[in-house]
Design a protein around this nucleic acid. Sequence first.
DNA 1: AGAATATCTGACCTTCTTTGACTAAGCGCA
DNA 2: TGCGCTTAGTCAAAGAAGGTCAGATATTCT
Lengths: 156, 156
Amino acid sequence: MRLSDTIEEFIKTMMAQDEQEIELKRNELAEYFSCAPSQINYVLSTRFTPDHGYIIESRRGGGGYIRVIRLRQKAEDLIHYLLNERIGDSIDLKSAEILLRQLSERGELTRGQAELMYSALTPQALSVPIPENMKDNMRARILRSMLLNAARKTMA
Amino acid sequence: MRLSDTIEEFIKTMMAQDEQEIELKRNELAEYFSCAPSQINYVLSTRFTPDHGYIIESRRGGGGYIRVIRLRQKAEDLIHYLLNERIGDSIDLKSAEILLRQLSERGELTRGQAELMYSALTPQALSVPIPENMKDNMRARILRSMLLNAARKTMA
DNA sequence: AGAATATCTGACCTTCTTTGACTAAGCGCA
DNA sequence: TGCGCTTAGTCAAAGAAGGTCAGATATTCT
């Protein structure tokens, strides 16, 4: 079996017992599996992505850590759909507005959240001197990032 | 847990009970936590700056002290200051994080709002191919737009 | 077999924390 | 006034994580 698969399983086992959230030390894990620390990043970036239902947070420096958060199934499905089908790598303001309204009506987001997200995508928010055609691309990224954040909480 | 975090908490606990203002002895504190005295300065300069809502006063020599004062401002004044002066047309991620954290600690924003706003400013959210120096400019606009949105409700 | 894809490693980078040597400022007393 | 404690401040270097990326290897697909 490949090392990556072993590490993946190991992490998933840790989460099974614990909660939906674990913290790990990159160097310790690498030490434990006698591999390069960057191998851990490889595993995380290929098997613990939002599409797989996970979110990663980390901190450097003394006392640093990597936190792996598992989304609940429903949130995972929704995020998968939103990121891949609905948003992709570009979304215009009007579509984003419609999407946010739907999410709020469906109760996936509070109205406040939806409005706050919308405010981050308006022309004023993005009134920087870059080509217009790049703005919908920015909207997509910003919206993704915010939806992932929300997925950890309300979307459940 | 990091020593710096422990010291930060310790100081905040002292303030919670007491009032808006406490006085501490650098050497005693360092002694108490078995660390270099300059560690105390590190904590103060990374966690008790005006951006964090505190100011520091101190005196050397016999009977010296360090005074930590929590600033209190009316919400409108704070928001006004942030929007017009502090954020201006550019703000880096770290500063934004600090400001959002302060707003949430003060109860001007919920923690969820602060985190949602933060997620719209991360490198992933802004990972578009534009010059780095323009990103802080974008952060400022996006953050302002979101704060205005929140302010219109909470503080209207 | 050859091309495409997936895995691993190592060198180098960035961020955050901790320590210690040296510096500066009040205070009290000769 | 000047000297010597008693404090606090500064800054650079060391330490402690984690991140990135290109290239070497290994697997899988056609």
